[in-house]
Amino acid sequence: MKIDESTLVLGIETSCDETAAALVMGGSDVISSVVSSQIEIHADFGGVVPEIASRAHLEALNPVVARAVVEAGIDDSRIDAVACTVGPGLIGALLVGVSAAKALSLAWDVPFIGVNHLEAHLYSAFLEDPTLEFPMVVLLVSGGHTMLIEMRGHGQYRMLGQTIDDAAGEAFDKVARFLDLGYPGGPAIDAAALHGDPDAVRFPRALTDDRDNLDFSFSGLKTAVMNYVRKHPDVASADVAASFQMAVVDVLVKKARRAAETVGAKGIVLGGGVAANSLLREEMLGACAAADIKGFLPSRAMCTDNAAMIAAAGWYRLASDGPTPLDVGAFPNLKLPLVDA
């Protein structure tokens, strides 16, 4: 099969709490992208409940795929391949997407491509700016991940640093719940912080003393926030939210900049749900400008989980590795395929 600019890939994503389908041509041209979010279903529980997520994916997936095809204004016989997240993620949720995607590929007699969700996040940037140059540093920050990755070329990744405890998004969720700001925590803190003073409380910036250490740690910060509030019950939540957010963003930006310096990156790209945070976006652009490198912020829709990035990564993987066998399952702990340092 020839993989080229006109190859149309259907992407499917069900690894966490978004059911998504998208049609992308040639790995970069988004024809349609549909995301059905379960945020409201899980809000009562203050986090994603795996069994509830799996049930919701099963219900939502067919209509979401149908809508992606209708919005693209094509006949489904035009689809050349089906790409789907096989990991990492919630096992039950992943299996819904993988089972459906493999069945679609069988029914249409087109290749199936199992996609690594983390790799797909790296590709979300190319959907909006195909001219991005290597090497670049990607800061991937979400509810499940906090990592700094050097991208040397397509499929060429090196892990520069990652969280040793909580993911940044997890810290946002936990602190938001503690401050009673609502769920999901990212947007809630973002909004509350607008009315607060980021310098009100100086929270710790973990692992920032050693310039060579590009790992992250957010569990101590979360504890510091809780201790502070318990000691100062009258403090304004907005001030705590703003100071907490400042501490997280400070660390993320500092480390991303150091990472870019270390590898001589031409730019820094943001990805993952936390990349939608307005302070992080602002500070990252500022830091990149100061370092005279390109700072690329994908749109908020591309930062959060979507299927266009799955289809795009799938297109590259199909071109480089060919189709995935139909006896593949799901891999809840799938890692990014790394090249040797």
Partner: peptide, 14 residues
């Protein structure tokens, strides 16, 4: 759910 997801996808595609 594996059976349901596959069955629904097949029926939808066919």
């Amino acid at each position: 759910r594996v059976g349901l997801a596959a069955g629904k996808a097949l029926a939808q595609a066919l």
